[in-house]
Design a binder for these strands. Structure first.
Lengths: 105, 105
DNA sequence: CATAATCATAAACCATAACTTATGATAAAC
DNA sequence: GTTTATCATAAGTTATGGTTTATGATTATG
C-alpha cells in the first residue's frame, strides 16, 4: 500500500472537513463555498488545494468559475487503506483474545 | 451520528499513527513504545492520551506499567462514521452522474 | 526503608499550519 | 475595451500542536 495519509490530514481540519462535506453534498464553486462558510476566499482556495492533493476532490473549470466535485477514486484509495489498517488492528486484537483464552485453560 | 472526528485528528500525525500501529500489532507499555520510537517518553504519553480520548486505544495498568491495547469499540465507531460519510459522498456523486446523463438525452 | 523503574502532567520552545489582506491573472458582461 | 466576477498565489500574522526537560506520584526491587 503506497497511500500517504494525505486524506487523513486533509479531513483532520474542521473547516476543511466542512468544505469537503459541502462539495460532497453537491458540486460547488469556490465563490459559493466562500459565501457559505465564515472564512475568506483564499482560505477556501487553500483548503481545496489540500483536498485536491489528497485526491478527495477534483476541480472542473466552467467559465471563470471552478466547480469542485468529490473524487471517487481518491476516496476509494483512502477507504482501502483504512480498511486494511483496522482490519489488521482487529485481527491482532482477536489473536490476543485467543492467546489469553489459551493461557487461562 | 455524534462522532466528533477525534479519530481522524489522532491518526493524522505520523508519530501517533506509528504508536497506534505498534499497539495494534501487540499490546505494549509506554516504556516499550518510548524505547522503540525516536521520541521521549512524555511525547509517547501525550500521543497515547490523544489516542485514548479518541477511543482508539485503552490502557490497562499492570504493576507500575501501563499496557496499551487497541479499543475495538472506538475503532468501530470511527469506521461506522467514515463508512457513512463516504457512502453519502459516493451516493451524491452517483446522483450527479445520473442528472448529467438525463440532461444529455 | 531506600532505590530504581514506570508513567502522567506541566512549562517552555519551536515548527507548522490556518488564517488575513493584497495582488495579479483569466473570463464573462456591459 | 472597460468593468466586474472568479480564483490562485504570495506575504505576513496568529494559533495550534508536537516535542523536550523537569517533576512528582505510584509500584516494584533490594
Amino acid at each position: 500500500m503506497v497511500y500517504d495519509y494525505a486524506g487523513m490530514v486533509a479531513l483532520a481540519d474542521p473547516t476543511r472537513r466542512k468544505v469537503f462535506e459541502l462539495v460532497a453534498e453537491e458540486p460547488r464553486s469556490v465563490a459559493n463555498l466562500a459565501r457559505t462558510l465564515p472564512v475568506s476566499q483564499p482560505a477556501i482556495s487553500h483548503h481545496l488545494k489540500v483536498l485536491r492533493e489528497a485526491r478527495l476532490v477534483r476541480a472542473e473549470p466552467r467559465g471563470a468559475s471552478n466547480i469542485y466535485h468529490v473524487d471517487p477514486h481518491g476516496l476509494g484509495e483512502m477507504r482501502a487503506w483504512l480498511d486494511q489498517m483496522w482490519g489488521n488492528a482487529l485481527d491482532a486484537f482477536r489473536n490476543e483474545i485467543n492467546k489469553a483464552k489459551e493461557r487461562d485453560q
